[in-house]
Write a protein that binds this DNA or RNA. Structure first.
Lengths: 187, 187, 187, 187
DNA sequence: TATGAATGAGAATTCATTCAT
DNA sequence: GATGAATGAATTCTCATTCAT
C-alpha cells in the first residue's frame, strides 16, 4: 500500500474509533488527528473536509459489510441461517465498535439522503438474501409452510440490528434468541 | 399549568422536533429558541444549560413510554401480544419523530451512563412484561411449548426497536412481520 | 442612534481605517475588533461574515460620495468647475484614507461584479454631471468651442482619480494641475 | 535562457496572471504553482518565499515599463505626445492584465516603502520626460504659452493611470480624451 | 530539480452562556 | 420573564513553508 493510502486508512480507523466513542455528535477532527498522532493540517491534507473524512468512514464501514452474505446457493437453508446468525453475533461480540458506528450511520441516514441511499442498498441486499434462504427452506420443507419469507427476513434483520440498542442484551440472551429463531421457523 | 411550566413544555417540544430533524449532532439551542419564537437568553432562563434542556427532552420521552405496557394480567396472552404489536406499529406510523428521538437517545446511552440507566430500566420493564405474556401464553398452551419466553421477548423488542433503522420498512411489511410473530409463537 | 446601530457604525469606521492601512489584502476581522475594542465574536454578532463587513464599508464609502455633485444648474460653469476641483482636492488632502479605501474598492471592482455595478453607477453620474458643466460652459462661450465635453469629463475624472497613484503628487502640483485644467478649457 | 531561468519566467508570468485575476488579496502560491503545472514545493525551490515571488513580479512589470519613453529629443513635440498617448492606449487595450497588476502595485505602494521607492522612480522619470516634451513644444510655439509643463504632465499621467478605474471607459472615449489633450495644449 | 507529505501559525466562524436593562 | 449585546472557548479550515526522498 502506498504511504498516502496507508495514512488515509489509519485516519479512517481513528475516525471510526472516535465515532464509536463519542458519536458523530462528539466527532472532532483534532481528536482524530491526535489519535493518529499527526498534525491537524496533515489530516486536512488527506481529507480536505470533515465531510470527506466521514465519507471515508462510511466507505470503510460499508465496504466491511460486503462479503457478509455467503453466496453458496445450494447449501442447506437451516444451516445457512444458523451460521449467518452465529456469524453476526460473533462479530458483534468481537467488534462492538463497528456496530456502534453503523448505528450512528443509520441514525444519520434519516437526515442524509446520500447516506440513506447507500445504506438502503445494503438493507435491500440483505433482505433479499434472507428471503431467498427462507424460500429455499420452505421449498425443502425444512421451514414452516405458513412462513412468510419476507416478514421473517424483516424480523431477523430487525433483531440483529437491534442488538446494540437492547441495553439488557447479553451474549447468552442473543444466542438464545438466535436459537429461538431457528425453532420458530422450523417445520 | 403555570405560565412558566407551559413555556418549558413548549421549549421541550421544540427541542424534540429539532433533535428529530437534525439529531443531537445538529442540536443548537438557538435553533430551539427560534422554533419557539423566543430569545436565546429567554431559553436559558428556563433551561440554564443545554444539558438541562436535553434532560428535559429525555424526561419527556421516557414519560411518554410509561403506560405503554397494559397491566391487566388476566387477559388472553395472544390478544395482548397482538394488541401490543399493533399499538407500537400504529404509534410508529403516527409519530415517527418520537422514535427518531428515542433512537438518538439509545445511541447516546452508549456514552452517557446516566441515560443508560434510565433507558435500561425501561428496557428491563418491557422485557419483563413481554416475558410474562409469553409465559402466560405457554401456560395456557396458546404458544409453543418449546418457546423460550425470554428469547422471544428479545426478538419482539428487537424487531420493534429496529423499525426506524430498517430503511426498506413499510407499513405493510411491518404488519406482515407482526403477523409472522403471532404465527411463529402459536402452538 | 440605537446602540446597535452606533456599534455597527463604529465597526465600519474601524474597518475603513484597517483597509486604508493594510488594504483588503491585510484586512483581518480580529484587527477590526481590536480597533473597536470589542470581542471578535461581538463583531460577528453585528456582521455575521467578513463579507458583510466589507459590504458595510462599501455602503459607507458610496454613501459618502453622494452629495459631492452640487445640483445648482444655473450657476456659472467655470466657477462650478473650479469649485468642484477645489472641493475634491481639499477633501483628498483632508482625508486621504477615504481615497485609499476607494482606490482599493476600484481595484476590487474588477473581480467583484456587484461592486462593479455600484461603482459604475457613481462613475456614470459623475461623468454626466461634468459633461453637463462643460456643455453649459461651451454654450455660454466660457469654454473653448472645440471642447469635447465627454472627453474633457474623462480627463478631469481621470486626473482626480489618479491623485493617489501619482506618487510624486503634492498639494502644490495638484493645485497647479487644477489651474491648468481651467486654463485649458477656457475659450 | 537556462532551464531554471525559463521556469522562473513561467512562474512569474503565472503569478502576474493570478494577481490580475484575483488581486494581491487573492494571490495564493499554490494557485500559481497549479497554473504553471508544478508542485508547490518546486515553486518554493525557485522562489523561496511568497515575498520573493512578488518581487519577481514587480521586477517583471517595472522592467516592462522601461523603454516606454522614447529618447529621441529632436523630434516634433506634438507628434511625440500624440504617439505617446496612442502607444499607451494601444497597450492598455492589448494587455489589460498588465495594467491591472500595475494598479495593484500602486495600491500596495502605499503600504510598502520599498515598492513605493521603485514606482516613484518610474513616476518621476515619466513626469520628467513629459515635462520636457511640453517645454519643447512651448519653445517651438506648438503649445500654448501659458501651458504649465509640470501641471500638464500631471494631468496626462493622471488620465493614463486612471484608465482602469474609470469603469465607464471605452476605447472610443479614451481616444477622444487623447484628442482633447492634443487640442487643449495646442497654441 | 521535483514531489508527496507534513506542519505551525493563523483565519473566519460557531456556540453555549452571561449580563445589563 | 424577556431581550439585545457581549464574550471565551472552541472548531473547521487555510496557507506559506519545510523536509525526506
Amino acid at each position: 500500500m502506498a504511504a498516502g493510502e496507508q495514512r488515509r486508512t489509519e485516519i479512517v480507523a481513528a475516525a471510526q474509533q472516535a465515532i464509536a466513542r463519542q458519536g458523530f455528535e462528539g466527532l472532532r477532527v483534532r481528536d482524530v488527528a491526535a489519535l493518529v498522532g499527526i498534525n491537524i493540517a496533515t489530516l486536512h491534507y488527506h481529507f480536505p473536509t470533515k465531510e470527506a473524512l466521514v465519507t471515508g468512514v462510511v466507505q470503510g464501514i460499508v465496504g466491511a459489510l460486503d462479503g457478509v452474505l455467503p453466496s453458496g446457493p445450494e447449501r442447506d437453508p437451516a444451516t445457512v441461517l444458523a451460521e449467518h446468525l452465529t456469524h453476526i453475533l460473533t462479530r458483534f461480540e468481537a467488534d462492538r465498535d463497528e456496530f456502534v458506528v453503523l448505528n450512528e450511520l443509520y441514525a444519520r441516514a434519516g437526515r442524509d439522503p446520500e447516506l440513506h441511499v447507500t445504506l438502503l442498498a445494503n438493507d435491500v441486499a440483505w433482505a433479499d438474501w434472507l428471503r431467498a434462504v427462507f424460500e429455499a427452506g420452505r421449498a425443502r420443507e425444512q421451514f414452516r409452510a405458513d412462513l412468510d419469507p419476507d416478514a421473517a427476513a424483516a424480523l431477523v434483520i430487525g433483531f440483529l440490528k437491534s442488538l446494540l440498542v437492547q441495553l439488557d442484551m447479553t451474549p447468552q440472551r442473543s444466542r438464545a434468541a438466535a436459537d429461538e429463531i431457528l425453532r420458530a421457523v422450523k417445520a
